[in-house]
Write a protein that binds this DNA or RNA. Structure first.
Lengths: 142, 142
DNA sequence: TAACAAGAAGACCTTTTTGTCTTTTAATAA
DNA sequence: TTATTAAAAGACAAAAAGGTCTTCTTGTTA
């Protein structure tokens, strides 16, 4: 569905928010272990998230990542647009550049509702709303 | 949505079927121009389609690609599974390996219906059904 | 202020995807 | 049977995605 960067960003940020809600600010080592992703890569991705202003970081002992509570919730759409652009949200299922309702591809009518549902999902859900769900800690139970 | 190989395969095969329905068997040069994709890459992809038994080819003068009418229609699902595997059709929206209804990820409930709709679409539609649609020739009107 | 902890930055590497190029094989027609 | 047409095959190359490693900076604590 999404690429790895988006997946890791999504899982990391939900994990950070989940811990923030418990008055904690997790570090890279903890985050990467919990979300089962490569530590150095997660570090790089979180750097980008900080530069984008999506989350804050504190250096030094006792440091870690945390959300600024005064900032509004981060929708999945904003995150996805930043990490992989809008092709999933706007692209034609057939891969045609010039596909639209006036000039539809053969899949246009059937794929439209699916794309709409995806857009609805990522517009409504936020990192914060996911962090409040039951399985937000997504501990793997084998 | 899909990767390039799947897109080009999809567009090529629909174009071939569309021309077959008009008693023609198009060649690589024609196909790649019509679907607006790199000729050598389309050639390679169609070779794979032939080896998979999805379509037939005839070499030499007057040659080209054609479907065997005695063979049943090719679903988009079969094509997608062959070109890029089942991650789009089965994967978790959150990218979790162990996501299922017993151990759902935070997106599980909302993403489920979307995945179901995608599966329904690619199971029901075939190269042939797309070739019969209005815009099957997908001429680009700018 | 020295030692340590933790994120920042960026160079570098690997793998996968996407694509090109050259040579070979097969079929047809003059 | 030779020239021509068109697909087959596979080596090669470029670009993007995914990932690692080292060094630097910043902050905390003894």
């Amino acid at each position: 569905m999404f690429n790895k960067e988006t997946e890791y960003a999504l899982r990391s940020l939900v994990y950070i928010q989940y811990q923030n809600d418990r008055q904690l600010k997790p570090g890279i080592e903890e985050i990467s272990k919990e979300i089962e992703a490569p530590q150095a890569y997660v570090a790089k991705i979180l750097q980008r998230m900080v530069r984008l202003g999506f989350v804050n970081s504190i250096k030094g002992k006792g440091g870690g990542f945390l959300f600024d509570e005064s900032v509004s919730e981060l929708t999945l759409k904003e995150l996805i647009l930043a990490t992989e652009g809008g092709t999933i949200l706007n692209g034609c299922g057939f891969g045609m550049k010039h596909c639209n309702s006036d000039n539809p591809c053969p899949l246009h009518d059937q794929y439209g509702p699916i794309r709409d549902a995806i857009n609805k999902l990522v517009s409504e859900e936020t990192i914060q709303s996911l962090a409040r769900k039951e399985n937000a800690a997504f501990k793997v139970v084998l």
